[in-house]
């Protein structure tokens, strides 16, 4: 356990260092942030002043060393656009994305997993076809189209829900459902595939021979074994979407991290990009760590490995 923790910490440091350095050099190749800050008609003196204010006149390597030094104390500097602490800005947007993703994930898992199991069990029946159809539909309808259709129905026509997000639980519903639909579709397909695989395994036959009810077999035995591969998927998607779903955040005016990051790319807002990459890096490594720990809980074969390590 301590070993795993050490490994993950090392991994974290490497991931952050690698990612940050990559972003550092990539954004500096991409162009001059001064013009993005000053806009189209600032005079040359102002542009020069901006560059010198930001320390962009120094050699890149000097900037890099300074950047690494600041990274050590987690100081990312001020956002070029917002003129306020970049990390604070990222952390301000982060909860919105996290909340949206977690709610969406709960909806997706809550619906997708049972639907996937049912789809597998009734593979050739009406239910199986329905699950297949829904999964394909969910994956092929673009996010923004679904989002706008939901807005038209629930906000414009029925007037039940607000058309854009950011305040209150009600405004969470539509974006969460839209995101969930997308995640759910993928999960349904995967759970279905995994379940089909499990269905042919010997322990299902054993359970049948022991006269267990179908429900017990499906939701106690099969599901538990399906959970193992599902965990890594859920972990991956959690990381991906907490980092932000730009499309959904745009359609629903959801003030999340994804939009901030894309804005920052366009505006060459280096500090926000660096802070964002840092947070996302930590997050992904952390989620992976949690998934690893959960693996040990659900998969005894891995627990044994951990003990021997």
């Amino acid at each position: 356990m301590a070993k795993l923790l050490r490994q993950r910490l090392l991994q974290l440091v490497l991931v952050i260092l690698g990612l940050s350095s990559l972003v550092f050099f990539l954004v500096r190749i991409s162009g001059d942030p001064a013009s993005a800050i000053a806009g189209a008609d600032a005079d040359p003196e102002t542009l020069a002043a901006i560059r010198s204010n930001l320390g962009l006149n120094e050699p890149v390597l000097v900037q890099y060393v300074r950047f690494l030094g600041d990274l050590l104390v987690l100081d990312f500097g001020d956002s070029y656009q917002y003129r306020s602490d970049a990390m604070a800005l990222v952390l301000d947007r982060f909860p919105a994305s996290a909340l949206l993703t977690i709610i969406a994930m709960l909806i997706a898992v809550g619906l997708g997993v049972p639907a996937g199991v049912l789809g597998a069990v009734h593979r050739d029946g009406l239910l199986g076809r329905a699950v297949n159809g829904l999964a394909i539909l969910g994956q092929s309808v673009p996010n923004f189209v679904l989002g706008l259709v939901l807005i038209m129905i629930f906000a414009v026509s029925l007037g039940w829900l607000p058309s854009f997000g950011g305040d209150g639980a009600m405004s969470l519903i539509l974006p969460a459902v839209t995101l969930a639909a997308f995640i759910c579709a993928r999960q349904m397909r995967l759970v279905q595939a995994y379940t089909l695989e499990e269905l042919s395994k010997g322990y299902v036959r054993t359970a049948n021979s022991l006269g267990y009810s179908t429900r017990r077999i499906r939701y106690r035995h099969i599901l538990r074994n399906v959970t193992v591969p599902m965990l890594s998927l859920v972990g991956l998607e959690l990381g991906q979407f907490i980092a932000g779903s730009v499309v959904i955040e745009s359609v629903f005016s959801w003030p999340g991290l994804g939009r901030l990051m894309v804005e920052s790319v366009t505006a060459r807002d280096y500090p926000v990009l660096q802070a964002g990459v840092f947070v996302i890096g930590v997050l992904v490594v952390l989620i992976n760590f949690i998934v690893d720990l959960l693996y040990q809980v659900v998969d005894p074969r891995l627990k044994a490995q951990l003990v021997t390590r």
């Binding site: 706008l148 807005i151 414009v156 058309s163 745009s250």
Partner: peptide, 8 residues
Amino acid sequence: ARVAALRA
């Protein structure tokens, strides 16, 4: 979405 917000 902005148009929808006005309509809603």
